[in-house]
Design a protein around this nucleic acid. Structure first.
Lengths: 277, 277
DNA sequence: CCCAAAATAGAATATTTGTTCCACCACGCG
DNA sequence: CGCGTGGTGGAACAAATATTCTATTTTGGG
């Protein structure tokens, strides 16, 4: 691809990394006002996504026109184009969303490989978002609670079943007592939840009533309940002691589980480490 | 007009928390278009900060004016005021992805968050490799074969079960006849495989004998057999018509399924598109 | 089945925001 | 010591965007 190590002054940076590189290159041999722009952007680059030129310029203590000139020096056509870069990087929705969705819906012989590229992109965004938005404290609490359980009960239906099943597999590998409530044949396994155990339930909106009912049963027995879901999980807050959320980017009506599986695995391994330590 | 005589003195939510609460209150007893707004905002609340009304409205599949009305129902004077709430919440927010990832990794290796950062990194690598190493021709053939099947039979055990289960879920959503051979209670479902059907088996090294035996049964019945596995899949080549591989990066002894789920979803959606087209 | 009230869509309007342009200033070089 | 080059700020202009308004459709009650 046409991305060279040395910055081409006519081509705008396509990624935030490229943007930073360009900024570093320029910084130092720049007229005073433009240097101010560079310094300010280096320190507050993400605020570009949500601010107007006037605001950014004011914070950098330069007139708006100076900021405009600076954008153009970076290779952008103007402030808007630079802003678009940061907006795209910030939102989980894919760029050109409408166009791509139209292609997916109408495009007759859309190549499977193109489709795959979209889902890979969605997965990448989700993973990125996962580290950025992580509530570390919440995760630590979940590890704490679950690692001290005698048996970890797992629940998850429909789209959440793969995650619960995966957790069951990993826990077994790690020699951690765990039990998957698969609800096969309508058989409950709720009475298997005993004092000293804990429940880890996985559910995504719209929340399946089975999962919620297992969670309620767990609480009724006094078990700590941890729910893994997608944001916003507001309706779940009263149902659990801890609610962890993973935002999974969608493409069209479809959502992969790329970030969720990574999160689940981390959780399991962290629990194992805690139990050993 | 901050105070009205009626018992609906709507003050705009001052925090995102308050915003979520109000959303939850309203949701349910709302006219159709406004409910769409509520649903969309619940799922993509942060994208408001970086999008115009027109964009948000388009994604929610409502006209812009409907979104405006909804903002006013929430108590805001208009979209701009609502947007301000999210912009403010975001600027105080976290450093960007690269910085955050570096911070997470630099900490003690036993921190759950550090662990997560590693798995996220592994996931990203896997996704990257997935597009790079993709054998497009093979994927097209798989789509071709599976899309013309009357029923798609799915097999997968142990670590592959989540993938097979996920495929079963997605096929059902897409109204594609599919059957998961879960092998529950040691019950085979092999006689359900009939002429005109196809088998999609998922297995990773070391290959489970159950999966291989289902694949053999499928072939014996003359069904086309597609296997989804990890490289090198050489031992599987004689067992199947097509062998697709997804390389999943590992961290320590552990492998996530980030790339595999993305691949599985793509495959399913591509098959659906092919059947419709 | 009809009517009133609410909801809706899209066009018209108002406002905000980005961008360009040009007069002015500072500095260095002939 | 002027003259030219490059930098600067602000005002004028253009584009994008939010917001309001109204004709039309839908909904629910009598």
């Amino acid at each position: 691809m046409p991305s060279s190590p040395v910055a081409d002054p006519l081509q705008p940076p396509q990624t935030v990394e490229a943007f930073r590189t360009r900024l570093a290159e320029l910084s130092g041999h720049l007229p005073r006002r433009l240097q101010q722009c560079a310094d300010h952007l280096a320190a507050h680059q993400d605020s570009v996504a949500v601010s107007t030129v006037a605001e950014v310029a004011a914070r950098a203590e330069v007139p708006p026109s100076a900021m405009m000139r600076f954008c153009q020096i970076l290779g952008f056509s103007g402030y808007s184009e630079m802003q678009r870069l940061f907006r795209n990087a910030m939102t989980l929705g894919l760029p050109d969303y409408a166009t791509r969705l139209a292609n997916l819906k109408s495009g007759p012989a859309d190549r499977p490989a193109a489709l795959l590229a979209e889902f890979v992109e969605a997965g990448r965004l989700s993973l990125e978002r996962l580290t950025r938005d992580l509530d570390e404290d919440l995760l630590n609490q979940a590890v704490e609670v679950l690692s001290s359980a005698a048996v970890i009960h797992l629940a998850g239906y429909r789209r959440a079943l793969p995650v619960a099943a995966y957790l069951a597999y990993v826990f077994e590998q790690l020699a951690i007592p765990a039990m998957l409530h698969d609800g096969i044949g309508g058989l409950d396994q709720r009475n298997a939840m005993r004092a000293g155990d804990a429940l880890l339930a996985v559910t995504f909106a719209p929340y399946s009533s089975e999962t919620l009912s297992v969670a309620a049963a767990g609480r009724a027995r006094g078990l700590p309940v941890v729910i893994l879901s997608d944001p916003p999980a507001t309706p779940l807050l009263p149902q659990a002691d801890l609610v962890l959320t993973v935002a999974e980017a969608d493409f069209g009506a479809f959502r992969s589980l790329s970030a969720t599986t990574a999160f689940a695995l981390s959780l399991a391994v962290a629990i194992a480490a805690r139990r050993k330590g």
